[in-house]
C-alpha cells in the first residue's frame, strides 16, 4: 500500500463529502448518514450508510448510494467499492442494484418516474436557487449594486472582491450554476434567463420559498435520524443557507 490507511480513509471521506442528499443539498457525511468505512489491503472499500427513516424515497436513496460508489471508485488506488444501506424498506433492491451496477430503472422496474437523471437535474436546480439566494442576499447586504452584479459574467463575478463568507457563498453557487445553462451571465434564473434588477425583490421572495421547503426537509431529516439512532442531531460543519436566513431574521427582528 503506497498510501497509509489513514490517508486512504481521509481520501474516501473527502470523496463522500462531495456527495449530497439531492433534496437537502447537504453532504451525506455532515448529515450523519455514513456509519462505516472499511478499507482492505487490496484496495477494496466497504461503505455503510443509514437514512433518517425506513421509508426514505427509494429513488433518492439509490441516487445517493450510486453517487457514493462512483465518487469513491474514482480514487486511483481503489480496486472495488461496496456500498451497503442499513434498515430500509428496499434494502435488498438497493444493495443488490448498487453492487451489480444496475440503473435505478432496472433495480426498480415498476417504479413510476424511474429516470434518475431528471430528478437529479430538478433538485440540482433547486439547490442552485438556494445557493443563489444566499449569495444575492449577501451581495445586497454588503452594499453591492444589483444593476452591476446582475450583469456580470462568470469571470466578472469571480473577480468581485468579497469577504470570506461571501467568497464561500459564491463558490457554492458557482458549483451549481452550470445546471441552468442559458446566458453567459453568472446570475440567472433556473431557466437560464436574466434576473432583472427592477424585479429583484419579487424574485428573491420567489426563490426563498425553495429554501423554506428545503429547511423543512432538513430539519425533519436531522431530527428523525437523531431519534432513530439515539444520537445527538448532526449539525452542519459550516452554516448553511438556512442558518444564514435564520440569523437574518433573528438579528434584524429581535434587537
Amino acid at each position: 500500500m503506497s498510501l497509509s490507511l489513514e490517508a486512504r480513509t481521509q481520501a474516501v471521506r473527502a470523496a463522500l463529502d462531495q456527495v449530497t442528499d439531492p433534496e437537502l443539498d447537504e453532504s451525506v457525511v455532515e448529515l450523519g448518514f455514513i456509519t462505516g468505512i472499511d478499507i482492505a489491503e487490496t484496495g477494496a472499500v466497504d461503505i455503510r450508510f443509514r437514512l433518517p427513516t425506513y421509508w426514505c424515497a427509494a429513488n433518492f436513496s439509490y441516487l445517493m448510494a450510486a453517487d457514493m460508489r462512483d465518487a469513491v471508485r474514482a480514487l486511483p488506488w481503489v480496486a472495488s467499492v461496496a456500498v451497503t444501506l442499513d434498515e430500509h424498506m428496499f434494502i435488498d433492491a438497493i444493495n443488490d442494484g448498487i453492487a451489480q451496477d444496475k440503473d435505478f430503472g432496472d433495480a426498480f422496474p415498476t417504479e413510476a418516474g424511474n429516470d434518475l437523471a431528471s430528478i437529479r437535474l430538478q433538485f440540482g436546480l433547486k439547490a442552485m436557487e438556494r445557493r443563489q439566494e444566499a449569495l444575492l442576499r449577501h451581495l445586497l447586504a454588503a452594499g453591492h449594486d444589483p444593476v452591476a452584479f446582475l450583469s456580470l459574467d462568470i469571470a466578472g463575478l469571480e473577480a468581485l472582491p468579497l469577504d470570506a463568507a461571501g467568497a464561500a457563498l459564491r463558490r457554492r453557487y458557482l458549483e451549481r450554476r452550470g445546471l441552468a445553462g442559458g446566458l453567459p451571465r453568472a446570475l440567472v434564473t433556473s431557466a437560464g434567463e436574466p434576473i432583472m434588477h427592477e424585479t429583484l425583490p419579487v424574485y428573491l421572495r420567489h426563490i426563498s420559498r425553495v429554501g423554506l421547503n428545503a429547511e423543512f426537509n432538513g430539519a425533519l431529516c436531522r431530527g428523525l435520524l437523531a431519534v432513530r439512532y439515539a444520537t445527538p442531531a448532526a449539525l452542519p460543519a459550516e452554516p448553511d443557507l438556512a442558518d444564514f436566513m435564520r440569523q437574518g431574521i433573528v438579528q434584524t427582528a429581535r434587537p
Binding site: 433518517p52 427513516t53 425506513y54 421509508w55 434498515e87 424498506m89 425533519l220 436531522r222 431530527g223 428523525l224 437523531a226 431519534v227 432513530r228 442531531a233
Partner: peptide, 17 residues
C-alpha cells in the same frame, strides 16, 4: 416489520419536534 417501522417513524416526528 413495516408496522414497526411505521410507528417508529411517527415517534421520530413526535420526539424530534
Amino acid at each position: 416489520i413495516h408496522g414497526k417501522q411505521f410507528i417508529d417513524c411517527f415517534y421520530g416526528y413526535h420526539a424530534s419536534l
